[in-house]
Design a protein around this nucleic acid. Structure first.
Lengths: 268, 268
DNA sequence: TGGTTACGATCAGTGGCGCTTATGGACCCT
DNA sequence: AGGGTCCATAAGCGCCACTGATCGTAACCA
């Protein structure tokens, strides 16, 4: 279970190719083949199918563990390095689009600050491995539930919960009513996975299957999403606070909130 | 960051000795010394003090990560092995003392079942590494909060929340009143860490410092604990359901519940 | 204070293993 | 049929994780 082997395993699965993984990792194809062979010899069952390259049942199980393990190894190295390096001379903060407004609250310093906007898991990862000094992320969760972030051992320094609402156009027939999410399974949803709660995650949160995206918004700009809603292209689930120019339908069931979490490395 | 080195590091810290760690791990003292030297060379700072052996600040950070990483590696191997082995012929279930009554609910089989009672983290660990097929654990948490278990990637198949109460003797002056936990900081507590909510954990759960044990009960037997409470030796925080022969003071603040979680390996 | 012990650091030597290059066989596309 | 691509295998090399021996020193004791 050498981490190097796990790393090549993950890469092979992601690329679906031994040769491509070898190129990316700087090995020869032969080396990659041997890495997989050693892993399979170790656990005693095939982890991959060949031609085409695919994941076996056992391989899928290993994959579930391999990524968190590798992430945590990087986090460990970064955490120790932070102790060695002492306090940073400039602060790099990550934030998800909806959490940008809070980024400043984390810090009251005379330090140079740079803010990087990206996806939630990416920020958690970057904070863990030391690419960022802190992060503010948001998402949808049950009240008091922490966000489901990659397990890095990072600390949640603070959190905030705000009401959720479904955004609809002002002239939408539902405007002004309170709604339950499972009653909107068949509605025209706008999926904005980079902004808030990918539709795919809604199934488990709302305990209802079948949410389908009528439109996918692949941007980080909330105003753009709201414009689409206002123009009647569909519904979006967002924190109530962020809704301007559209009607907000309070969600009365299931009990869900919009949660913002401040992540710091363990040292800062 | 070879896991073997991490394992050595953890063992050295736990035993406070290079030589003792070498004996337990089947290395020579020289090998252990080199393991630590490689780790320190890798991260660039000392991880341990020598004579006496102690943990530096950087070492403490590494330790926080090393144990979960090693556990997760074992869990990965066990998870794959379970796929290879197929369904078990007999079921090994772990349970914490207060959760024993639920152990049967997990399973409706014609299989031979053995139940092992031990501490919460130990059960989580054993389920993860395949020593047990399932587990039922309990603890105190905020409503809807999952229990803080070691991160193994194990699945929580089901959970149950019940009201908490403070157990006091029937003739106690508080009997019949509702209480807040922080008002009882200076009360005579009986700490029963193997049964429910170690007093040390209460500080963060109740957001109040200073809970001190007047008496520590180091047994897994709830009846024994209740007898001590009934005899007036002190207070104990327990699920209301478990209280017989004593007075139960409902806890009105902070919002806490007694939570039971059913753990299964990912395959069962 | 000097002797003794135990512990950790260091060094030389070696065996295993993780890598490479080279080659072989299976499949695809034209 | 033949070239191209892919993964598996074989052979060989070089590194490095180990052992065993030795050294320096902190800790203990009279």
């Amino acid at each position: 279970m050498d981490p190097r082997f796990l790393r090549t395993f993950v890469r092979v699965v992601r690329l679906g190719s031994f040769s491509a993984a070898a190129r990316e990792l700087g090995y020869t194809q032969s080396g990659v083949s041997q890495h997989i062979a050693v892993l399979e010899g170790d656990v005693g069952v095939p982890l991959l199918t060949r031609r085409p390259v695919g994941v076996t049942e056992a391989g899928a199980r290993l994959l579930e563990h391999a990524e968190p393990i590798l992430l945590r190894l990087d986090a460990a190295r970064a955490d120790v390095a932070r102790v060695a390096a002492g306090p940073p001379s400039q602060l790099r903060i990550g934030a998800t689009p909806l959490a940008c407004g809070f980024a400043a609250e984390l810090v009251a310093p005379a330090l140079a600050v740079t803010v990087r906007v990206s996806a939630r898991d990416e920020i958690a990862r970057a904070v863990a491995v030391g690419e960022l000094d802190a992060g503010v992320v948001d998402g949808v969760a049950a009240p008091n539930d922490p966000l489901r972030l990659p397990e890095t051992g990072a600390r949640v320094a603070r959190s905030l919960e705000e009401p959720l609402a479904v955004a609809v156009a002002d002239d939408h027939p539902l405007a002004g009513r309170s709604i339950t999410l499972d009653g909107l399974v068949d509605a025209r949803w706008i999926d904005a996975p980079t902004i808030c709660a990918p539709l795919a995650d809604l199934a488990s949160l709302a305990r209802a299957e079948g949410f389908r995206a009528a439109l996918t918004y692949d941007g980080a700009d909330v105003a753009g999403l709201l414009a689409l809603v206002a123009a009647g292209h569909g519904l979006a689930l967002l924190p109530e606070r962020a809704l301007t120019g559209v009607a907000a339908l309070p969600v009365i069931a299931p009990a869900l909130v919009h949660r913002t979490e401040w992540l710091t490395d363990n040292y800062g």
